[in-house]
């Protein structure tokens, strides 16, 4: 993919990335920063990327990991209420999911890859196949991560909230 290709397709992909960042970060300014960073990474690797479903999956993966990193670094900020100018996408339950103490504790207790899979499964509502496609894992790995997540939730007494 050339830089021109990226410019030509930016609006479509940009909306997906921005919404995704808003969903995880719950804060429009942070989401703008994160979206910018995702596309900076994209620009650096544009010669390796091809427009299409693979690029969409790549952007989902990079934006998810980047936002989870930001959440980890800024746990206190995460507790703040979402901005008023957040796009009205998804149900309120989805966007608030990460702010719930139990879920935050659960996500903090599991490995980064499991955390990533949890977002795909419980925030995005992806099927196992879709998670495998976006994350680059096998279907079996996806199931294993979700099993680990549920086991951890059970041990923490959160099974009712996470599954």
């Amino acid at each position: 993919m050339t830089r021109d290709d990226l410019i030509g397709t930016y609006q479509g992909y940009g909306a997906a990335v921005f919404r995704r960042c808003c969903q995880i970060l719950g804060n429009a300014q942070d989401s703008r920063d994160a979206s910018q960073e995702v596309f900076e990474r994209c620009l650096r690797r544009c010669s390796e990327l091809r427009p299409g479903p693979e690029l969409l999956a790549w952007l989902y993966r990079v934006s998810t990991n980047l936002c989870l990193d930001r959440l980890r670094k800024r746990r206190q900020e995460v507790a703040a209420a979402p901005d008023d100018d957040l796009p009205s996408l998804g149900s309120a339950g989805e966007t608030r999911l990460l702010y719930r103490d139990g879920v935050r504790r659960l996500l903090a207790a599991v490995a980064p890859r499991t955390r990533e899979v949890a977002i795909y499964a419980y925030v995005d509502g992806m099927t196992h196949d879709e998670i495998a496609k976006v994350s680059g894992m096998t279907d079996r790995s996806v199931r294993n991560h979700l099993t680990r997540l549920r086991d951890t939730a059970r041990r923490m007494g959160l099974a009712g909230e996470s599954s």
Partner: peptide
Amino acid sequence: SNFVLDAFRL
């Protein structure tokens, strides 16, 4: 899922 809707939209 949002991913599938995005893929549909694009």
